[in-house]
């Protein structure tokens, strides 16, 4: 009977190994794998946003906000037009940002977009489809 206790002890160790150690190792090894998947994908979106920032800061298109009594946004391309998809335009009415657009507009050539007269002398922001936000105080362009 004494000889049997050693194999039983080994069996118990084996069970503990399977039941505790292996799931624990699996749990703590998965996190890095999953998060790197998201990071690879996310870096593509961020690159697209940066690309758009570079285009706009270099004036392609140059966005000018003329804040007269009939305010408008002026889009001027200086080289080959890079389409700019604007999903929302807001102006600040003195207490909150008010949306102007209902639906999106695509700017692909020199264009002039009129804003409501209530935007006169108020700051404006432009939200693009790539998730960039550009801030335009009255009579300035994006820099």
């Amino acid at each position: 009977m004494k000889g049997l206790s050693i194999p039983i002890a080994f069996l118990i160790f084996f069970i503990i190994l399977i039941v505790i150690l292996i799931p624990t190792l699996i749990i703590f090894n998965q996190l890095g794998y999953y998060s790197s998947q998201g990071r690879v994908q996310g870096s593509v979106y961020v690159q697209q946003q940066e690309q758009q920032n570079i285009q706009i800061y270099k004036g392609n298109p140059r966005i000018y906000y003329n804040s007269s009594t009939s305010p408008y946004l002026l889009f001027n391309y200086t080289s080959i037009p890079a389409p700019l998809n604007i999903t929302e335009i807001y102006y600040y009415n003195g207490s909150m940002w008010v949306p102007v657009l209902h639906g999106s507009i695509v700017i692909s050539e020199n264009a002039k977009y009129p804003l409501p007269p209530s935007a006169f002398n108020k700051p404006v922001i432009i939200v693009t489809s790539l998730g960039n936000i550009y801030y335009l105080p009255p009579n300035t362009s994006v820099v």
Binding site: Q30, G38, I125, Y135
Partner: peptide, 20 residues
């Protein structure tokens, strides 16, 4: 840990833009 993996995955592929 599974929930955390999913959240981490969403977190690392999202970006946030904010205006003034």
């Amino acid at each position: 840990s599974n929930a955390q993996n999913l959240a981490e995955n969403i977190a690392s592929s999202s970006s946030i833009s904010v205006g003034p």
